[in-house]
Design a protein around this nucleic acid. Structure first.
Length: 799
RNA sequence: GCCGAAAUGGUGGAAUGGCAGACGCGACGGACUCAAAAUCCGUUGAUGGCAACAUCGUGUGGGUUCAAGUCCCACUUUCGGCACCA
């Protein structure tokens, strides 16, 4: 009898063996096929590892171990995305330096990860806050700057009055700060932007080249938000020359239905022709009101339209020559399209609402709706009316025809637009990469020369944010004062830092050569590792990190640093792990499960098995304290196989080849739950039989090894006289043996199962019918029709 | 409002259009035990029946099909994402 399974001793033994012998450390080897598996590197918060991390990392862990057993040279790295607000806030609260906090947290994370037995290459750990790392983050920024893709501009930004920091749109969704939940206000500020819009089309097209789930592609497509339409020019009559007011529309076919124009309150027309505006006081009051209105309100007060007629300015419909009034209203946004629209109340609900409120005419130009009741969009199937050039045409034909006409007559041209905005790329915080730009009164913005990189964060005593929304770095006068690298004159440093998304936008490249000191990535290493073969992470990063990093990679492709335009070949996403109450895990709900407790109580293998067994990997799943017991029983049962070994026994009740195929395929398709279930079933079969062979046990150990490496390594060593599992091979199945010679065929009568027959695989219909006859089901019944699906089912349709 | 995902026993969840409920948990019964825990064996969708078996059953209502959890149409609810995007 084998001793009871002592998971503590066994897990410690194997972790020591793996890590001391550096078994997961890899180097480029052209003679071996490579596999690069990537997980989203964690933010090393003070709370430590979360069971959500375990679920997120376990898929690639299984794949990485499986690929090694299949003979691949596997790069499976880990690192830390360590810049950011939580650390800085924690550091301020506890009066420590963020550097100290970060280092302590990273040490804690590494210890926790090792206790779970992850097969990371520990020689490649990266930390985005390490100057040797952010040196290259800064270098990439400078390359963007040199090519005009980083620019400073004065705009309204989302500002969190609590965190005292400018937020990206992505960080202030629903008008509240992502971090602290405080309502965001609009603030006028100079900010750095990256021109991600210039890459919008290529980021969209690139999705065709990659293996991402449709759900992710659709989210990215929606985020990029491509729309096609036209820009049309309406002449606005002024005291001087006519002002060409450009509007953007996706529905140029409705041009005959335009009854007014609306410009955004920030539109330059209002500033430029102040003197022509009769009701300037009213307009300026409205502008002031719109400015203070938070974006949140503009969205949620959507129902009630507000606006002011611009008295003194009149526009001309370029097609009909009709004079139409101009309004300003905050339902038109300055940062989408041209900040001006042609309003077609009959066929756009927002314009309809506005027209009703201001008693403006509504002209129907597409038949089919009742435009006195509501707007009728009629994208498909509507027929144009009241539109001389396109009357009688369906909308889909009217659009190209009218664009052609307008193009030919110089009043409009086709235009594509994107919802995605440029990426606001700075924060007024201490714990981030300093933006490596020097402001020189003579030379303007000058990048820090390469030889001076990294531009280190100065060691500040007081890194609290300032109340006026400028960076804490501005308080460090000695650091700010510098000389211009171009003219040698006095100059000042940029004091803002980069957003947290910066470091994570290229880390997958750094892993390939983490210590390279002459480039972000060593071309030789890149040549071998190339694209990430498989990247797993959370759905919450699909529209931010995943787009940003695709953008940076594409840029690096353009400047010749990398050779693949798309960084990730395949992407998968784990579902959220919920508390046992079915709610999102959070401290305030008190439903957080600490993986350390599970490891201490049940062992790492049980934790790893359970987190993957819990349900469909891609869907959210609640943690179950009871469910984990079943996985502990499973490992105990597995351990007992050692006592059932015999030289020879009848194993015909278990098709090992089918099991190998099932488990292997399931791993590749992230169906870990059904893979484990299949192994459990096999184990139940063997346990019921009471005897097993070395071949069976070895197969099961190798199949399960990627999920539960400790217990399987130990058993494998014991039963194979000291042989190590890591030099084994993932089992291969014989396709010939996947199916048995006979099948049990359900016999249906009128779609209901009434019996079953044993027949040879591939039996003919007549053979099956003969077998069915012996069941005696067909007395007093006339068979009208037979549906026979070989090896599946036979269904008899009777009178 | 728009886009996406989902709804299956007491419960977490399985099912290329072909035997619904694999696997796990829980519950019930039994074995072992002085007893309990642990472990092992058995039962476990509902209803009727001593039983073989029958009928019903995958959110709701229709439909396609020899056959529907799966496909189509119309809804309901839940969860994600986007949102005055012209």
């Amino acid at each position: 009898m084998a001793k009871d399974y002592d998971f503590k001793a066994v897990e410690q033994k194997w972790q020591q063996y793996w890590y001391d012998n550096k078994l997961f450390e890899v180097t480029e080897d052209p003679n071996q096929p490579k596999f690069y598996g990537l997980i989203e590197f964690p933010y090393p918060s003070g709370a430590g590892l979360h069971v959500g991390h375990i679920r997120a990392f376990s898929s690639m862990e299984v794949i990485a171990r499986k690929k090694r057993l299949e003979g691949y040279n596997v790069l499976f790295p880990i690192g830390f995305d360590a810049f950011g607000l939580p650390t800085e806030n924690f550091a301020m609260a506890t009066k420590q330096h963020p550097r100290k906090v970060t280092d302590a947290n990273i040490i804690k994370f590494i210890a926790q990860l090792k206790k779970v037995g992850y097969s990371f290459d520990w020689s490649r750990v990266i930390d985005t806050t390490d100057p040797e790392y952010y040196r290259w983050t800064q270098w990439i920024f400078i390359q963007l700057f040199k090519r005009g893709l980083a620019y400073k501009s004065n705009t309204y930004v989302n500002f969190c009055p609590n965190c005292k920091v400018v937020l990206a749109n992505e960080e202030s969704q629903n008008g509240v700060c992502d971090r602290c939940g405080t309502e965001v206000i609009q603030k006028d500020k100079d900010v750095w932007f990256l021109k991600i819009r210039e890459y919008a089309e290529r980021l969209l097209q690139g999705l065709d080249q990659v293996n991402f789930p449709d759900k992710i592609k659709i989210e990215q497509q929606n985020w990029i938000g491509k729309s096609t339409g036209a820009e049309l020019v309406f002449k606005v009559k002024t005291s001087g020359e006519d002002y060409p007011l450009v509007v953007y529309t996706t529905r140029p076919d409705t041009i005959y239905g335009v009854t007014f124009l609306v410009v955004s309150p920030e539109h330059p027309l209002l500033e430029q022709y102040k003197k022509d505006i009769v009701n300037l006081d009213e307009i300026e009051a409205y502008q002031a009101q719109a400015k203070t209105k938070r974006e949140f309100d503009r969205i949620h007060m959507a129902k009630e339209k507000t606006g002011v007629k611009v008295e003194g300015l009149v526009a001309i419909n370029p097609l009909t020559g009709t004079e139409i009034p101009v309004f300003t209203a905050d339902y038109v946004m300055m940062d989408y399209g041209t900040g001006a629209i042609m309003a077609v109340p009959a066929h756009d609900q927002r314009d309809w609402d506005f027209a009703k409120k201001f008693e403006l005419p509504i002209i129907e130009v597409i038949a089919g709706g009742d435009v006195t009741q509501e707007a009728y969009a009629a994208k498909d199937g509507g027929i144009m009316v009241n539109s001389p050039l396109i009357n009688g045409l369906p909308v889909q034909q009217a659009i190209p025809k009218i664009i052609d006409y307008m193009d030919a007559h110089n009043i409009g041209k086709p235009k594509t637009d994107y919802k995605m905005k440029d990426w606001a790329f700075n924060r007024q915080r201490y714990w981030g990469e300093p933006i490596p730009i020097i402001n020189c009164p003579k030379c303007g913005q000058v990048p820090v020369p390469d030889k001076d990189l990294p531009l280190r964060l100065p060691d500040l005593e007081d890194f609290n944010p300032t109340d006026d929304a400028s960076s804490p770095l501005s308080k460090c006068k000695d650091w700010v004062r510098t000389i211009c690298p171009l003219c040698g004159g006095p100059a000042t440093r940029e004091t803002d830092t980069m957003p947290q998304w910066a470091g994570s936008s290229w880390y997958f490249l750094r892993y390939m050569s983490p210590h390279c000191d002459f480039a972000p990535v060593d071309p030789e290493a890149y040549k071998y590792w190339g694209q990430v073969d498989w990247y797993n992470g959370g759905m919450e990063h699909v529209t931010r990190h995943l787009i940003y990093s695709r953008f940076w990679n594409l840029f690096l492709y353009d400047i010749g640093v990398v050779t693949y335009p798309e960084p990730y070949k395949r992407r998968s996403a784990q579902g959220l792990i919920l508390g046992s109450d079915g709610e999102k895990m959070s401290k305030s709900r008190g439903n957080v499960v600490n993986p350390d407790d599970v490891v201490n109580h049940y062992g790492a293998d049980v934790l790893r098995i359970f987190i993957l067994f819990i349900g469909d990997y891609e869907k959210p799943a609640p943690w179950s304290p009871d469910g984990i017991k079943g996985c502990a029983r499973f490992t105990a049962k597995l351990w007992n196989l050692q006592d059932m070994l015999v030289k020879n026994c009848d194993t015909s009740d278990l098709n090992l080849d089918a099991l190998i195929k099932k488990v292997g395929d399931d791993y590749e398709n992230t169906k870990f739950n059904t893979a484990i279930a299949a192994i459990m079933t096999a184990l139940n079969t063997i346990t019921a039989r009471g005897k097993t062979t070395l071949k069976e046990v070895n197969t099961i150990l190798l199949l399960l090894n990627p999920i539960a490496p400790h217990i399987t390594s130990e058993m494998y060593e014991t039963i194979n006289k000291g042989a190590k599992i890591d030099r084994g091979r993932f089992p291969v199945y014989d396709p010939e043996k996947l199916v048995s010679d006979t099948v049990e065929l359900p016999v249906q009568i009128m779609g209901r199962v009434r019996g079953r027959v044993q027949v040879a695989r591939g039996a003919t219909q007549d053979e099956v019918l003969q077998a069915v006859d012996t069941l005696g089901l067909l007395q007093n019944i006339t068979v009208r029709k037979v549906i026979y699906v070989p090896d599946k089912i036979i269904n008899l349709v009777v009178k």
